[in-house]
Design a protein around this nucleic acid. Sequence first.
DNA 1: TTGAAAGCGCTAACAT
DNA 2: ATGTTAGCGCTTTCAA
Lengths: 342, 342
Amino acid sequence: MSTKSADRKPTLEDVALVAGVSRATASRVINGSKKVNAQMIRDVQRAVKTTGYVPNTAARTLVNGKTGSIALVLSGSDGSAEQVFGDPFFGRVTGGVVKHLSNEGIHPSLVLADSDEARAKAISYVRRGGADGALLVSTHADDPLPGLFVDERLPAVLFARPGRPTPISFVDLDHDKGAALAAERLVARGCRNIATISGPPAVLAAQDREKGFRQAMAQHGRPYVPVAIGNFTRESGEVAMAELLRDHPSLDGVFVANDLMAEGALQVLRDHGRRVPDDVAVVGFDDSLPARQAEPGLTTIAQPLEEMAAEMARLLLARIADPTVQPTSVIFAPRLVIRESA
Amino acid sequence: MSTKSADRKPTLEDVALVAGVSRATASRVINGSKKVNAQMIRDVQRAVKTTGYVPNTAARTLVNGKTGSIALVLSGSDGSAEQVFGDPFFGRVTGGVVKHLSNEGIHPSLVLADSDEARAKAISYVRRGGADGALLVSTHADDPLPGLFVDERLPAVLFARPGRPTPISFVDLDHDKGAALAAERLVARGCRNIATISGPPAVLAAQDREKGFRQAMAQHGRPYVPVAIGNFTRESGEVAMAELLRDHPSLDGVFVANDLMAEGALQVLRDHGRRVPDDVAVVGFDDSLPARQAEPGLTTIAQPLEEMAAEMARLLLARIADPTVQPTSVIFAPRLVIRESA
DNA sequence: TTGAAAGCGCTAACAT
DNA sequence: ATGTTAGCGCTTTCAA
């Protein structure tokens, strides 16, 4: 097979021995120090090859205090793992993070913080050197995790602004802007009776989208917008749409705070014999994959989740490299994607 | 705020000092050694509290050679990260792994191995002590990764049997059984002209499902089963269904190798004015979330992905704990889920 | 049972 | 530019 000579894994010592230099020099070559004789560089590199040497991470970490890895903490509100990972939102964010970090050669460890106990363990994990910092993806406004990380002075960056004012970096979407885009589209289509289906009040993004929508509508001279509250699941979208239809039969336009609920709404509309978009126009939010395949195609607000995730990783890496950097926030712009539903 | 006294993180030395014992004894207490005086145990525990001590992972790893963490390697066939994480299949598997491992207090690091370079890096990552072993989730039959891990003698467990015979543990689904379940259902419904839409030939599961289906059909006296080949995407399902409809207009039953393609098939059937299940019965595979919400509800073959993922983790942990254990395989049984489509 | 001391493999002063 | 050496924080013989 391959050149597998010794039984014990080769150490820097072995490399140095083979190359005929000191451990220090071997270390310098391996870490790319410029100030080394060209010949020795070659010798060491050859020795690395022949011995099959790979630097021991633990030893490195022990001496320089950096693990070179980061934690991706998913802090669902005490939900189950299956639910979190089944959600395309988390999938896209995770994908964005993993992809960006892969380029840096670092592999995030997945930490589920779905209970107080799990949150305490997550903190402890980072504290004991499991990671240099954490990427926190939590949606709940009252999630205590961001505060805990700040208290412990552990580097962390949030996805979505924190519920309470907290000195911590975060990336977010301009939800107001997204909602305004939706409002404009509906108004421009000539809808007269416009309502909205909002997400769970405990989620900031849901609050922002509803508030932003109302605000934009007000600017278009529509002071009153009926609302039905869902919880971001498809089923809740069905219930909410039915409710809206019952209380406001003359409805001809609706902004739904996420695509999953919009799918449910679409179905209820169909079941009630309302044509979309002719009778009722529908705008969703997320531009999720299923949305693209809905019938009719869902007009929706797209958010650049992967880019946001990458930026989040970038911010964390910067913070780890230089702990004195001030907290920053990066807000991304949403985009209206027009399909058939509005 | 909290009791934050020293600036430097407390070490075992600090704990020992405060407790008035030696470092060795402190270590024993922290690692739960039985042979320590009860009073000292209390003293040390108190000292841990007051100092806010957390053991340093790197130091531990350095001495005992175990990192206490494992890698979850997603080896898509050179696809993009977004694609992998957008796939509900990977989501469920990842969820199952993360959840099971959380109980053991270990957090898997996500490694993307979607190119030869990435695969080499993945190996190197484990070799240098990034993880004690790896969970490999790859679908391609010719994925070289399993072989690489075996060659390097690195503990690893596969999701899905390896393409080539390889001495490595794995978990898998009994695809033949699943396909047989589908065949039986279709036959029992009274379908006369049954076809199948299969997945990409490079994926073992796809091969198994087609082969299993043919075999079961043969046992029911149906020697000939037309096939159209897709690649597990919704779009390919549409194309394949259209093809089947063109070449075999009298078709009245179809087994589709995954739910995503089945969704596409359902839509094409609808567009062609074929009623499901009255004109054409459809059975999918996976029992994915979208499938549950399709119209009509998709009859499909469910696989216990989360349990399979958990078992995979269990096998790896066992292998790490005792490197001499022989490779094992655990095959799970599929289940027929009856909805409206067949 | 407890403590003293020797490393685990590496990097970074410090000397040369 | 290169080598020597002192740790990083912990576990674990080995003595006592």
